[in-house]
Amino acid sequence: MWEFLIRSLDASTIFTIAALGELIGQRSGILNVGIEGVMLFGATLGFITAQTTGSYLLGFLVGIAIGGFLGLLHGFFSITLGGDQVVSGMGIWILGFGLTTYIGSAYTGLLGLERIPSVLGLSPFFFVGIALVVITWFVLSKTSLGLRIRSVGENPAVAEVSGINVTRTRYLCVVVGGMLMGFAGAIYSLDYNPVWSYNFLMGWGFIALALVFFSMWNPFILLGGSLLFGTLWQLSFNPEMVLPGVLSRYIWRTVPFVITVGVLLLMATKWFRTRWGAAKPEALGQPYVKEG
């Protein structure tokens, strides 16, 4: 049971960090549905780097860098070219899925490095995740940078008039967001489950995307949601650790996805919307074209 809790917290760390990346981008008005692709890239390139150089640090750096690069690419398509953000995000996801399948398959198998030491029994990244939540919350709601980001996400035209550089702010957010997603992917493949296999993420990124919608764009609610889904996810992997012999393990694997649909349904009800109001960034998903 103890081991189960630890693994759950480790899993929730990955959800937290990836979803935080998405949250930052969305607060600035940019929707990136390609989280899964960014995570696959971060995980695969981080894994290959760490295995060939023997250095975890380099692995993480490469994971973060490729994440930032993909964020930049998404920014280029959706900010500079003003394209449909869903199309661009889909493109990044399929690029990630397709290319990493090819690049990674030569490295199928175990990472083969000594495990990253744990801190108080937990993965050190758990604490990094908590710190990132607090920092993101602080920056978004207590600093002038956060005010700029939020105003760009709510009403870019007004923000532009009041002297905020919409393009630069949005680029900053998608690149930082991408770096966090790539980092989360690298944590998966270097720390949580250091094995490479075909399409190994199986939905972590899409659950992280849904988590941002649940969180009402609030980092602390996001952390709560991640803890819940980390536990559910772990339960779906190892149901025998908690409820041995109940249901097939394949049915357990569907549970996090079924619950995601259930929560989305709950959030769409009139009761929920009147009670919690709409916290959604007003300009989310809409390309902004500067007048002139």
Binding site: L73, I94, L95, G96, G98, Y102, S105
Partner: peptide, 21 residues
């Protein structure tokens, strides 16, 4: 190595996204 057809899928997709413009 395995996955040439998947890699092609990815490259086609991202090129297409750029061409949406």
């Amino acid at each position: 190595s395995f996955g040439v057809d998947f890699a092609l899928l990815g490259v086609l997709m991202i090129t297409l996204v750029a061409f949406q413009f």
